[in-house]
């Protein structure tokens, strides 16, 4: 089940008791029930929708419970162009999400402005909010988004803190 148990001693416990650490169990739960907050502003959002739909089916990885309320989600997927007028909205949504929270910057525009090197477009959301995983592509395929979610899962199970949080208890 992906849970890396420690201290298992089949001889002493007859295989009925397992010991582990709180962190490992909590992280195991977090990892397999990421609730994404979609922030779709452009064509990347279409690929995100495809990822959630039946063909690619993100629910296979426990992340299908899309929450449109930031207070109920722990994974922010920024998919699309972010203008200077939209950035305060994104920042506020990020601030409203409870810790611990992770951020995926999906596609070229969210990661670096993409082809839109213009007066109105933020050249990478990581200037203003911490980003854990970047996805290249214009737009990336659903497999890329799934891979990014799996990378976030890997980060969680390794016990690493999200970029935006100093200490995770």
């Amino acid at each position: 089940m992906g849970l890396d148990f420690v201290g298992q001693d089949a001889d002493q416990t007859d295989g009925n008791i397992i010991t582990t650490t709180i962190d490992k169990v909590v992280n195991w739960g977090r990892k397999n029930s990421l609730w994404p907050m979609p922030f779709g502003t452009a064509c990347c959002a279409i690929e995100m929708m495809a990822t959630l739909a039946s063909k690619f089916d993100l629910s296979r990885f426990g992340s299908e419970a899309i929450r449109f309320s930031p207070r109920q989600s722990d994974l922010l997927i920024v998919s699309g162009r972010i203008s200077i007028k939209m950035m305060p909205v994104l920042k506020r949504i990020y601030d409203q999400m409870p810790d611990p929270k992770w951020v995926i910057s999906m596609g070229a525009c969210a990661s670096c402005g993409g082809v839109f090197d213009t007066y109105t477009l933020i050249q990478g959301v990581d200037q203003f909010i911490p980003v854990d995983v970047y996805i290249p592509g214009c737009p990336p395929r659903p497999e890329d988004l799934i891979d990014a979610v799996l990378q976030v899962q890997q980060k969680i199970s390794s016990g690493a803190s999200p970029k935006g949080v100093e200490i995770v208890v």
Binding site: I84, M87, K91, Y119, I122, Q123, F128
Partner: peptide
């Protein structure tokens, strides 16, 4: 007014001096 021809494509630094407090 950004669609005027004398407005620079990359702007006049709006992307860099970005003030969250002011806009929020």
């Amino acid at each position: 007014h950004p669609l005027r021809k004398d407005y620079p494509l990359r702007g006049r630094g709006e992307r860099e001096r970005f003030n969250f407090d002011k806009q929020n």
